[in-house]
Design a protein around this nucleic acid. Structure first.
Lengths: 191, 191
DNA sequence: CTCCGAAGATACACTCATTATGATTTCGGA
DNA sequence: TCCGAAATCATAATGAGTGTATCTTCGGAG
């Protein structure tokens, strides 16, 4: 059978995962990313270090930022399932506008985390790799949706995925996001 | 006085630096980047590990790729000292065309190194950070030379510096480089 | 209900990069 | 000749991440 509710095992697994990532979040926010060791996080979550790495093979930074699975799926879906008459670039802009530093209405917790990410080089770099990790997938979707498949498509994908990192540190992230897409639309008319 | 020839001290320093980086190059080419430890490199160069890190604070990857100092200076100079009547983007394209995978005439040694970099994720990532490490400097120069200074300039700088990483892995790197600049010129006419 | 196998969790030991420390050598210039 | 600075060195410590073998616990087959 397929659709039984989670069961105790999966619930416990999710619980430890949750414990780990929220312990990490608290410690990072309190003392800064670099001043917290994985051992301390594991301790705070009352688990073994091995368990931490079993849940987050991506390492320390994955504890707050997750791995890019949902991100990638959501991104591809945003393009593929865009509203009739919406261009690819519009769909991408709208999707990014709901994310991280660009979302105007987000809880203060998320705001503090976003600030920490922007202020911590290691985290900012990791966030960027999460985005650019979607590059292959995005390239594929754009190729399918546009009927075009060459270097220019890969270039566009990379450039789109660089926008969050760049715009995120600007004084007005949302405005910067829009500004970036003006240039992308000019470079890739028809997308 | 200022211009005495290097002197024994500086010569020795340069020699150990040279010994380290060529030992690293040989070992990496022979056994792959990930299968060589810094201890082995230091041994091969007959120095202490501490000395290795004194010369290359950037870590293992800096041993083949260097740090970005000359790179940054050369890049800024290429824009600032460009020929009369040459646009900023043309100057940048021409500069990049002489670099790494894009240079048509380079010795086989350099070719093997470039291949290794492209094939090794850690090295490719480091090479990319070296380029994007020039972002602030390039942004500044473009702002000065164009008289424009806002987010769009930073965006352009980032996009230019992403080109090497992207075009470098294409079947025809030089052609990809040119293709990328077609889009950049379209997005930033007047640069 | 019982029992077996797999999944999760754990402890432990290990490798490796990188940093810190303090001693020791070795030039270069006064 | 002698002093100070720079380069090198050995050594130890920290901290991330991996591998392994063991133990516990749940879920499903019988």
């Amino acid at each position: 059978m397929e659709r039984t509710e989670p069961g105790r095992r999966e619930r416990k697994k999710a619980a430890t995962r949750q414990a780990l990532s929220s312990a990490a979040r608290e410690l990072f926010l309190e003392r800064g990313f670099d001043n917290v060791t994985v051992a301390e996080i594991a301790d705070a979550a009352d688990t073994a270090v091995s368990t931490l790495f079993a849940h987050f093979p991506g390492g320390k930074e994955a504890l707050i930022l997750g791995h890019g699975d949902e991100r990638e799926a959501a991104l591809a879906a945003a393009v593929r399932d865009r509203a009739e008459g919406t261009s690819i670039l519009e769909a991408l802009r709208d999707f990014l506008a709901t994310r991280g530093p660009f979302d105007p209405n987000r809880d203060p917790q998320a705001r503090r985390v976003a600030d920490l990410v922007v202020a911590t080089p290691a985290l900012r770099a990791y966030a960027r790799t999460l985005w650019t990790g979607c590059e292959d997938a995005l390239t594929k979707v754009i190729a399918e949706e546009s009927g075009q498949d060459d270097f220019s498509v890969r270039l566009l994908a990379r450039y789109v995925l660089e926008v969050p990192d760049l715009a995120g540190v600007e004084a007005d992230p949302a405005a910067a996001l829009d500004a970036a897409f003006v240039f992308l639309r000019r470079g890739w008319p028809g997308f």
